[in-house]
């Protein structure tokens, strides 16, 4: 490989990168400092490093036994939900590229239009109840299994694959499903990786379906548990009930709680994310598959 000399472009890119890293990292750093500081002190002083360094904020949140359970529920939801979603969306995306599919155009339109249709809370609630999804783990999986946005992304990607590969496989006698699994899927790995990230993040961050229809504590998701924790600590609520009372231990500020909660949700994502990244590298490894 010929070593290219450092061009102006490279230099500018490096500088811009550093600037971007600072811009993007700054809110995260601010939150890290805030969550590791004593709640009262950080709200009164401007500081770039933790004041009154403490893990107490995290301890407070992680102490409740339900958080650990909720963590597991969210993790399972992310894994199972994503796998199901991938299976459904990749299949549909492939089938819809087959011109001989009857009613293909209609089906695809139906799929795309779902992104702009909203029925409203009450009919949604009634429908889910009728399907028996109240207090049911499947509520976290089924509604998002066939997702228009992902289907569109994958389909667009599949269309850029040369048809010669499919043709030769089918001449060899391979059926639709075999082609899907053995040929299409491996070639789509980059977009599949992208969709995996999107789907897993969605699942990890969801809490609204939990709030509306799931009341069993062993099905509570992490985000919802944290949301409840935050609600409970709202200063207005505690104040109204105990106006004028002097407490010995001052509860942490709402800001601290909000920020620590956010960190608890974000940090696991960034522990897992680097493993997905390798699928995004320039397809040196994939070039071999395609070529």
């Amino acid at each position: 490989m010929i070593h290219k000399k450092l061009t102006l472009f490279d230099g500018v890119m490096n500088v811009v990168s550093v600037v971007l890293i600072i811009v993007f990292l700054f809110p995260f750093y601010y939150m890290l400092v805030y969550s590791l500081s004593d709640s009262q002190m950080i709200s009164r002083h401007l500081s770039f490093v933790p004041i009154g360094f403490t893990f107490q904020n995290y301890v407070d949140i992680l102490n409740s036994p339900e958080i650990v359970k909720a963590f597991i529920v969210s993790a399972m939801r992310a894994v199972i939900g994503t796998v199901i979603t991938l299976i459904c969306c990749t299949s549909v995306a492939y089938f819809v590229t087959k011109k001989e599919l009857p009613m293909r155009k209609t089906m695809y339109r139906l799929i795309v239009m779902t992104m702009y249709l909203s029925a409203g809370i009450i009919p949604w609630y009634i429908t889910m109840m009728k399907y028996g999804l109240k207090n049911n783990f499947l509520l976290y999986i089924l509604p998002s299994a066939v997702s228009a946005y992902f289907i569109i992304l994958i389909k667009t990607y599949i269309e850029s694959i040369p048809s010669s590969l499919e043709e030769s496989a089918s001449v060899d006698g391979a059926g639709i499903l075999v082609i899907l699994v053995r040929i299409i899927f491996p070639l789509c790995l980059p977009i599949i990786a992208a969709v995996t990230v999107f789907s897993a993040v969605n699942q990890w961050n969801s809490w609204w379906d939990n709030m509306m229809l799931v009341f069993k504590p062993n099905l509570k998701t992490l985000q919802y548990a944290l949301y409840q924790y935050l609600q409970m600590a709202s200063p207005r609520i505690t104040s109204i009930q105990h106006a004028g009372e002097l407490l010995n231990r001052v509860p942490p500020n709402a800001n601290t709680i909000k920020i620590t909660i956010s960190m608890v949700t974000i940090i696991p994502i960034f522990v897992v994310y680097p493993f997905m990244q390798k699928y995004f590298i320039n397809g040196i490894m994939l070039g071999a598959v395609k070529g």
């Binding site: 850029s160 980059p190 992208a194 320039n282 397809g283």
Partner: peptide, 13 residues
Amino acid sequence: IIYIAAIAGIDRE
């Protein structure tokens, strides 16, 4: 990420 995935699919050749 979507575009990075698309770029990753471009043939190096």
